[in-house]
Design a binder for these strands. Structure first.
Length: 884
RNA sequence: GGGCGGGUAGUUCAGUGGGAGAACGUCUGCUUGACACGCAGAAGGUCGUAAGUUCAAUUCUUAUCCCGCCCA
């Protein structure tokens, strides 16, 4: 390959657009059941079908792609199932927005027409996110792509609903749910975000009916006064002893209601008396239920006061009503005092509107029986969280679980498969449409208008995507899947629900391992959000820096379970790394014109043995780290090997051999080692940076169809060569010492130095002699080696390395005082180290209790430090006289 | 109020019961036959604070302060 053929700056765009179609069209992502192979399977957390790729996706899918590609290369039957989610509220909101722009609404056009529009919307935008996934390099099996509302997934949803219904685990009841007045639907508890907000605590006087005094209640929501049907106190609260059961008169309304006793009340909070509004507060609902209290709905679905609130307040917005009520209470003499109070207020996670707890009739899943198994599975280790601490988060939620409200007052989604008979009120759950009532034979039936929570279908994802409820061979082979990779924000929403669903319907957990990663924050550590406008678009980053750089940046910033900040400096670093690799490869390729891989013709040099040993260590480390899900660390290890060992040392040492300064055999050996190590390293790096590694790999001799299908480098222990590593370290140390002296003494890089190396021990001398060429080349110095210098040069800079002393004669260039100062500085550092080591070795406790190998190590250290100290002291006294 | 995570170089972050690391930034010097998205060298840290366990603590325990997240 001639130099002109390869640009000196890597251009990801030219490369990345080419390889993805090659892989996809080549069928390299597709895999089928093969009993000869071990399966490895990941199901992709499905992104919103009409959404766009954000940084969180980019991280999540990068991690999954790394695992999938790695296992595939390892010979596993590696399947990554892609798919998208219908995202009920989000998608419906988009379509409604569009309708609003056209001056109409879903109510005006009707359900059927609306669904047509929603499907059209899905068709229009449904491929955007999958196209973006392709740009990221995701190696998922697109032939198995699924959608939560496709035929199969919908069947799974109906099947699960019916089965739970028949087992009595799905029921319909009046209950307090979280109503979003803007989205016009109920949402589940975990879809409510509690935001701490400054508010007030109003103290109100509720008089007794008999005119004999009053009780004081405190509330943060005075508008709910209108719906009060009792006041509760703790049964043991002495302040209210004897008053329980007495009737009160509700201010402004005049309703009579009792003072009741309930354990729920915290006597130490506020006045110890709590007003009870069963229709607008979940806790009050429970209390009201226990005491058979009336439930009065005073706020409607728009967030406005209802007719029940009375003519004075009806139609007012709940917050306007609050102001008016406070004024009225004050005027009536009922308001005792107002305190400032910061408290958590529930907001809709979709639209950020304040949630109204509201009594309504909804469908629920009874969670207790399902949760039990899910708790057991985690405790028994059938499903393992990484990092382990997330097990606790999961368990605490599962153990305190409440029933799951699954009906949504939306149109876009899986319609609840339940019909009501208008004649006899029978409720019929059925997989197929029902036209006749099985109880009374009536034909006037109506399907429940609501749809199911989006997470209801996502909960089935690990098995619905593999064909369930059909008993497919895929299901038998790939389930339970190997690992779930997802963000810590959806442990409750999704992970937990998949686990109990899998246990309930597949009799096994959906995945053995849950690998949790953090959130991608902006450079200032804030969540990326639309409202802040601080999001970074992954596609923009791919355009400017390439998908490989984005992936590498994300994975190296990631440590298991922790958040990471997106910063552009790190992204530049990743791009620079890609460029470094590109140029190292370019160098190798430029020197391979005459190279035909074949029989080894020459002897391995020390540098060859060293880099091969380091490479085998690399393969071992990367594999080990991937196995323990430390993907970021694996990437960092690769970075360091490529940059600091392969490029900085090995390539530099190979140069003279390639430029014909040695023998043709040696040139050939250098070519073959360069090629082999580069090729193996590319293979190890491929899961992390798929595009650039494929591009380079394809230029190397001995390539195959694709690096995707190359076999994962196996760490061959026989390639480890500790002796070569030790020797190279010695030579590197001497090289660095000379470079250091050159820099400190301001000797220009172009000027060749002389260096005398004194090594009393034959073994060290031997290493130096054989490595002379290395040092001379890398330090630009002429070397002479001595067992003992007869006459130590006076005008010379000095350094001590492991096994040798270095003298660099600098006649006329050296300032003796300056050199002495430098040596004194080094001596000071040495003495500090020595003091610490000696402190240990003089400590009886240490000698008697520390492990032998640690003591041995300290002794060795002491020896070496003392040796260096002596050498530097001698040198100093020689330079400036014997008074040092 | 309960739980969890973080507090390490100017910045962003790794890491570890036994010699404090990287990247970026800074300083010095370099068109060294792959790379200035580069090369060589350097400076820079009481590892939040206090106590305890230990022969030994940045690492383990406890308390405490600050920041963030989750739950009630």
């Amino acid at each position: 390959m001639a130099k002109a053929d390869i640009p000196s700056t890597y251009d990801p765009r030219a490369v990345e657009d080419r390889w993805y179609p090659y892989w996809e069209n080549g069928g390299f992502f597709h895999i089928g059941v093969n009993p000869e192979q071990k399966p490895f399977c990941i199901v992709m957390p499905p992104p919103n079908v009409t959404g766009q790729l954000h940084m969180g996706h980019a991280l999540d899918y990068t991690l999954q792609d790394i695992l999938t590609r790695w296992r595939r290369m390892q010979g596993y039957n590696s399947l990554w199932v892609p798919g998208t989610d219908h995202a009920g509220i989000a998608t419906q909101a988009k379509v409604e927005e569009q309708l609003a722009k056209e001056g109409t609404s879903r109510y005006e056009i009707g359900r059927e027409a609306f669904l047509k529009r929603a499907w059209a919307w899905k068709e229009q935008y449904g491929s955007r996110i999958t196209a973006q996934l392709r740009r990221l390099g995701a190696s998922c099996d697109w032939q198995r792509e699924r959608f939560t509302m496709d035929e199969g997934c919908s069947e799974a949803v109906r099947e699960v609903f019916i089965r739970l219904f028949e087992r009595g685990l799905i029921y319909r009841d009046y209950y307090i749910t979280n109503w979003c007045p803007k989205c016009h639907t109920t949402i589940s508890d975990i879809e409510v975000e509690h935001i701490e907000k400054p508010g007030h605590f109003w103290y109100l006087k509720y008089p007794f009916k008999d005119g004999d005094g009053h009780v004081v209640v405190a509330t943060t929501r005075p508008e709910t006064v209108l719906g009060d049907t009792a006041v509760a106190v703790h049964p043991d609260d002495e302040r209210y002893a004897g008053l329980i059961g007495k009737m009160l008169v509700l201010p402004l309304v005049g309703r009579e209601m009792p003072l009741i006793a309930d354990e729920y009340v915290d006597p130490s909070f506020g006045t110890g008396a709590v007003k009870i509004t069963p229709a607008h507060d979940p806790n009050d609902f429970e209390v009201g239920y226990r005491h058979g209290l009336e439930q009065i709905i005073v706020i409607d679905k728009e967030g406005k006061m209802s007719a029940e609130a009375g003519p004075r307040y009806q139609g007012l917005d709940r917050y306007d009503c609050r102001k008016k009520i406070v004024r009225d209470l004050e005027a009536g003499g009922y308001l005792l005092k107002t305190e400032d109070l910061s408290h958590g207020v529930g907001h809709c996670y979709r639209c950020n509107t304040v949630i109204e707890p509201m009594l309504s009739r909804q469908w629920f899943v009874k969670m207790k029986p399902l949760a039990e198994q899910a708790i057991e599975a985690a405790k028994a280790g059938d499903v393992r969280f990484i990092p382990e601490r997330f097990t606790k988060v999961y368990l605490s939620w599962m153990e305190n679980i409440r029933d799951w409200c699954i009906s949504r007052q939306l149109w876009w989604g899986h319609r609840i498969p339940v019909w009501y008979c208008k004649d006899c009120d029978e409720t019929i759950a059925s997989k197929k449409p029902v036209s006749q009532c099985p109880k009374c034979g009536g034909t006037d039936l109506e399907q429940d208008p609501d749809v199911l929570d989006t997470w209801f279908s996502s909960a089935l994802w690990p098995f619905s995507t593999l064909g369930w409820p059909k008993q497919t061979i895929e299901l038998a082979y790939y389930y339970p899947t190997s690992v779930l990779v997802t963000g810590r924000d959806i442990i409750f929403f999704w992970v937990a629900r998949m686990i109990f669903s899998g246990l309930a319907f597949m009799n096994d957990v959906p995945f053995r391992v849950v690998s949790i990663h953090g959130m991608v924050l902006d450079a200032l550590g804030r969540k990326m959000s639309k409202s802040l406008g601080n999001g970074v678009d992954p596609i923009d980053v791919i355009e400017s820096h390439g998908a490989d750089s984005l992936r590498f940046m994300l994975v190296t910033s990631n440590t298991p379970g922790n958040d990471l900040r997106f910063n552009f400096e790190k992204l530049d670093g990743a791009r620079n790394f890609a460029n470094k690799l590109w140029n190292a490869s370019r160098f190798v390729l430029m020197n391979l014109e005459d190279f035909e891989p074949g029989e080894q013709r020459g002897q391995y040099t020390l540098a060859d043995r060293w880099i091969i040993s380091r490479y085998q260590n690399l393969a071992e480390e990367v594999t080990r780290l991937l196995e323990s899900y430390e993907l970021g660390e694996a990437a960092r290890v690769l970075y360091e090997f490529i940059w600091n060992e392969f490029c900085d040392w090995y390539i530099e040492l190979a140069k003279p051999r390639l430029y014909g300064k040695t023998t043709p055999q040696d040139r050939y050996t250098a070519q073959s080692v360069l090629t082999a190590v580069l090729k193996g390293t590319l293979e190890l790096l491929h899961p992390f940076m798929p595009f650039i590694t494929e591009e380079i790999w394809q230029h190397l001799p001995g390539k195959g169809l694709t690096v995707m299908r190359a076999s994962w480098p196996v760490a061959g222990k026989e390639l480890a060569d500790p002796e070569a590593e030790r020797q190279m370290e010695m030579l590197m140390e001497v090289t660095k010492a000379i470079r250091h002296i050159r820099s400190e003494m301001n000797v220009p890089p172009g000027k060749q130095l002389e260096a005398y190396l004194e090594a009393p021990q034959a073994a060290f001398r031997d290493v130096l002699e054989r490595g002379t060429g290395y040092i001379q080349g890398l330090a630009n110095a002429k070397i002479a080696i001595f067992e003992a210098l007869k006459e130590k040069p006076e005008q010379a800079a000095h350094a001590v390395t492991h096994g040798a002393e270095v003298f660099v004669p600098l006649k006329g260039l050296i300032d003796i005082e300056q050199e002495a100062a430098r040596l004194r500085k080094e001596l000071a550092v040495l003495e500090k180290d020595l003091a610490r080591v000696n402190g240990k070795l003089n400590n009886q406790g240490f000698l008697s209790k520390a492990p032998a190998d640690v003591i041995e190590k300290e002794k060795k250290k002491e020896n070496e430090l003392t040796g260096k100290q002596t050498a530097i002291r001698e040198r100093l006294s020689m330079l400036v006289g014997g008074n040092e």
